[in-house]
């Protein structure tokens, strides 16, 4: 693929069509496989599929307790533990969801190798079901963040109604593209799952997720401007908690970056898909 092919608008917008078509045509399969992805993890356990919701709820509860009572962090000038909790949760919800999507999609094609190899199966469904299966984490995390923001009194419902859907929509494109990228490269580069774990390990600290950007050293603050992932957190923080350095540029960088990741991710997947059979 030459550089020109990368920016080919027909191919890039074809990605939107491609994913939409896959989701519609195989909607039964997508929903069944999403359910399976959710329940497979907890198959044979007493509480079964309830864990799919219970696990992120427990995680969020732990974070709420930690940030409200242990860290009691300060958010700019506001010394309000509840506001800080809302801030941390609104960063953690997309972060944990993204981690979940990355670590699951990197193995999804390989672990469904028999489907890919043995039957005429729409492989494009696999990254989609991974993303859908991670939505409970996102939903519960965002709900917890919104509740915390409402409790702390920093909530502006009008702002939330406009910016949260925008952030969530961009986020869906972003993780969808990531899932397509990672699931197709993961077939050939099996180390990718460990690389991803490493990146996720340091990513939590290199991005303004649980700390306000103003508290970071200057070099890191500079990197936030150019780091699209940091801009994603700016968007979520702004939508739910509001103005800690209102990041105007974030609302351009993050959505554009998400759509680009989505398009290129889909195209990379389609480009590599015919070769899956050779290494599975």
């Amino acid at each position: 693929m030459s550089v020109l092919a990368l920016v080919n608008p027909i191919a890039n917008f074809g990605a939107l069509w491609g994913v939409g078509y896959t989701m519609f045509k195989h909607r039964g399969l997508v929903s069944a496989m999403t359910g399976r992805e959710l329940t497979d993890r907890y198959a044979g356990q007493v509480l079964g599929a309830s864990w799919a919701f219970l696990a992120p709820m427990l995680t969020m509860t732990v974070y709420i307790v930690v940030f409200t009572f242990i860290f009691q962090g300060r958010l700019g000038e506001i010394e309000n533990p509840a506001a800080f909790t809302a801030y941390a949760l609104s960063g953690l919800a997309p972060w944990l969801t993204m981690s979940d999507v990355l670590s699951r999609s990197v193995v999804t094609v390989v672990s469904n190798g028999n489907l890919v190899k043995q039957i005429v199966f729409p492989v494009e469904v696999l990254p989609i079901k991974v993303v859908f299966a991670c939505l409970p984490t996102l939903g519960i995390g965002i709900t917890a963040a919104v509740v915390a923001a409402a409790v702390s009194g920093v909530m502006d419902w009008e702002r939330l109604a406009i910016y949260l859907p925008a952030a969530l929509l961009s986020f869906m494109f972003f993780v969808g593209g990531l899932a397509y990228f990672v699931s197709s490269f993961g077939v050939f580069l099996r180390d990718l799952k460990d690389i991803i774990n490493f990146i996720l390990g340091i990513g939590l600290f290199l991005n303004p997720i649980i700390y306000p950007p103003g508290g970071a050293p200057d070099w890191l603050q500079t990197s936030f401007i150019y780091n699209p992932i940091a801009n994603m957190f700016f968007c979520f923080h702004y939508a739910i908690v509001g103005g800690v350095d209102p990041p105007n540029q974030a609302w351009i960088i993050f959505p554009v970056f998400s759509v680009v990741v989505f398009m290129l991710g889909w195209r990379a997947f389609r480009f590599l898909k015919p070769a899956f059979g050779n290494v599975l």
Binding site: H26, G28, A32, M33, D40, A43, G44, L115, I119
Partner: peptide
Amino acid sequence: TGFHPDYTGRENVVLGGLCLG
């Protein structure tokens, strides 16, 4: 293929059928 050992025959018929289109 497309059948999961832990699922019942009924669930597998549905899932297998979906996998086959």
